[in-house]
């Protein structure tokens, strides 16, 4: 279990991410740098997933709750934006459909090309 050790590891990575962003000046948000740092620590086996299992499972399974407070600030957004919500809703939905189609086509095209090359390469 060692909850305090798990929290210490995760919050230390958060702070390291903030230091790299604010002091070193890497132009990515601190929490995203933190995610990359943890990924590096996991790949190099310096941190094992089970060492932070409970805390990370808690955050991963209740992720949406932590976005609730920032989302409430929508009520302070001006009417010039809120008044256009039908347009914004339409745009969000159609952009999503276009993005799914383009991503799927590109990935599938490249996979098939790779498969064709490999099957050609394996022939005598």
């Amino acid at each position: 279990m060692r909850i305090f050790r798990q929290l210490t590891i995760i919050f230390a990575i958060c702070v390291a991410g903030e230091i790299l962003h604010r002091i070193v000046g890497i132009p990515l948000p601190g929490n995203i740098i933190g995610m990359v740092l943890l990924l590096i620590l996991l790949c190099t086996k310096l941190v094992k997933p089970q060492q932070i299992a409970e805390v990370s499972n808690f955050f991963l399974s209740h992720l949406a709750f932590f976005f609730l407070p920032p989302s409430i600030a929508i009520m302070a957004v001006g009417d010039d934006i809120l008044g256009r919500w039908p347009l914004l809703l339409f745009l969000c939905i159609s952009f999503t459909l276009v993005t799914i189609a383009f991503t799927g086509w590109a990935t599938q095209f490249l996979i098939r090309r790779q498969e064709r090359r490999e099957s050609r390469g394996s022939e005598p």
Binding site: I10, G17, L38
Partner: peptide, 17 residues
């Protein structure tokens, strides 16, 4: 509550890994 957004992002590395 919003402070916890930072650790919540960091642990996204786990499913990625």
């Amino acid at each position: 509550i919003a402070v916890m957004l930072s650790p919540a992002t960091v642990v996204l590395a786990i499913p990625l890994y």
